[in-house]
Simulated scan of single mutants.
Amino acid sequence: MSRPQQVAELTDHLGFWLRMVSNHVSHSFSRRLEGEGVTVAEWVVLRELYGTDPLAPSRLAERLGMTRGAISKLADRLMAKGLVARADDPRDGRAHSLSLSSAGLGLVPMLARLADENEAAIFGCLCAEDRSRLEQALKKIAQARGLNDPPLT
Rank of each mutant, 00 (worst) to 15 (best):
L98I: 01
L138Q: 03
L105S: 02
S58I: 09
R68K: 12
E119T: 07
R86K: 14
D130Y: 02
G93P: 11
A103W: 04
S132C: 14
A120R: 15
T39V: 14
S97F: 06
T39E: 13
I141Q: 09
E135W: 08
D130F: 04
E34M: 07
S28K: 08
A115L: 13
A142Y: 12
S99D: 02
W17E: 04
R131I: 08
D130A: 15
S30N: 14
A112S: 12
A128K: 09
I71Q: 00
T39A: 13
R19H: 13
H96S: 11
L60Y: 03
P57R: 02
D76I: 03
V45M: 10
L78C: 09
R131A: 13
G106M: 05
G124N: 07
S99E: 15
E119V: 14
R32Q: 12
D130E: 11
A128T: 06
A41R: 02
A85H: 04
A137F: 09
R59V: 04
R68E: 08
M79V: 14
S99N: 00
Q136A: 12
R94F: 13
S132V: 14
L126Y: 06
L55Y: 03
E42W: 01
Y50D: 07
L98V: 00
D89G: 06
E62G: 05
M110T: 08
E34R: 10
A121H: 04
S97W: 05
P109E: 13
V44K: 09
W43A: 11
I71M: 05
H96V: 08
V108A: 02
R133Y: 05
S26P: 02
E129V: 15
R113F: 04
V108R: 05
V21M: 15
P109W: 07
A85E: 10
M110Q: 13
R68L: 05
A56S: 09
L46K: 06
G37H: 01
L100K: 02
S72A: 12
R91F: 09
R77H: 11
A142P: 13
S28I: 05
T39S: 14
G124F: 07
L138V: 11
S72N: 07
E135K: 06
H96N: 09
E48C: 07
A56Y: 03
P109S: 13
R59L: 07
V38Y: 01
H24M: 08
A128D: 06
M20I: 12
R31Q: 15
N23F: 07
E36W: 08
M79Q: 13
N118R: 08
A56K: 12
L107Y: 01
L134K: 01
R32E: 15
S22T: 10
A137L: 11
Y50I: 02
S97L: 00
L78V: 04
D76W: 00
L60R: 00
L18V: 13
R133H: 07
H24Q: 07
V25G: 03
D89F: 03
L138R: 07
G124E: 15
T67N: 01
Q136S: 14
R113V: 15
C127P: 02
G93R: 13
A120L: 12
R133V: 10
A128S: 07
A144C: 10
L46G: 04
W43H: 14
R31H: 10
F123G: 00
D88I: 01
A115C: 04
A128I: 11
V44M: 13
L60N: 00
